[in-house]
């Protein structure tokens, strides 16, 4: 494990959650530093997505803490977690299907809107100024992720790969410093996966992000992550560089029969 002197961006301390007696995540600890690109891997049902849900407030941990930028955000509601600077995507894509690509991204700007609801009701110029500004920013963002041509399409009509990319763009629009990606390459062929991984790396550099991503396929993660944590049965069983993980006997054991 890399030892850094500076304060971690995100620190998970002994996260534990049980659903009706079934322990889904147990004593999970991990630190992420600014600029990191960390992978979280493990067999199906290991509790990876549950860790994300604990960070973003979908679930409240039974035990343990989530510290973000030195602040305890354990038990914050999902919308509050977003406002402090953590954004996410979902394993099963959750776009606003009937809204356009542009509108999908614009929703993420809503939380920073200054106007009251009365301003657009009375068509006040102050509202229109704000709307114009966020529209411009949303266009720029869609340009940056390569979706500028389809801004007026309904989100549900996009091909699968573009839907994934839109989900990332929508998350970026909340101005996060930490981005959580839940199996971004799920359902993609090797070529698409490679492109996506390049895209993720580029996003991290362009937007100054820290990225924490879940992946089922070990090979994918090995390619881009600098550090990897491995889960099995709700527990962290290993953490280290791709090289260390590749040679870790416990990881090999957990994946035996799943990976060739």
């Amino acid at each position: 494990m890399k030892v850094k002197n500076k304060e971690p961006l995100l620190s998970l301390e002994n996260l534990t959650v049980a659903f009706g007696g079934l322990v889904a995540v147990s004593d999970f600890s991990l630190q992420l530093f600014s600029g990191d690109l960390v992978g979280l891997i493990g067999p199906n049902g290991a509790g990876k997505t549950t860790v994300f849900n604990l960070i973003t407030g979908q679930y409240r941990p039974t035990k343990g803490r989530v510290i973000f930028q030195g602040k305890d955000i354990t038990g914050f509601s999902p919308d509050l977690v977003t406002t402090v600077g953590i954004a996410r995507t979902f394993q099963n894509i959750r776009l606003f299907g009937n809204l356009t690509v542009l509108e999908n991204v614009l929703v993420s700007f809503h939380v920073r809107l200054q106007s009251s609801f009365l301003a657009p009701m009375f068509s006040l110029p102050s509202y229109w100024r704000e709307e114009k500004a966020i529209r411009r920013e949303a266009y720029d963002l869609l340009e940056a992720v390569g979706l500028a041509d389809v801004t007026k399409e309904e989100a549900q009509s996009l091909p699968y790969g573009e839907q994934r990319r839109l989900e990332i763009a929508r998350a970026l629009a909340t101005h996060p410093s930490l981005l959580l990606l839940d199996e971004p390459a799920a359902g993609m062929n090797p070529q698409e996966t490679r492109e996506l991984m390049e895209f993720i790396k580029k996003m991290r550099d362009d937007f100054n992000l820290t990225i924490f991503l879940i992946e089922h396929d070990m090979k994918v993660v090995m390619g881009i992550c600098e550090r990897i944590a491995v889960m099995d049965f709700g527990m962290k069983i290993a953490e280290g560089t791709p090289e260390e993980i590749r040679n870790n006997p416990r990881v090999i054991e957990a994946y035996l029969g799943v990976e060739d």
Partner: peptide, 28 residues
């Protein structure tokens, strides 16, 4: 006016997918 504004988009987002709307910072 409200529906066409940022508020309207937030309301529609709730209709389309509550979990995602909340994750994008909308207070449901």
């Amino acid at each position: 006016g409200l529906v066409n504004s940022s508020f309207g988009r937030a309301l529609k987002a709730i209709r389309e997918n509550e979990v995602a709307a909340e994750a994008m910072g909308v207070n449901l």
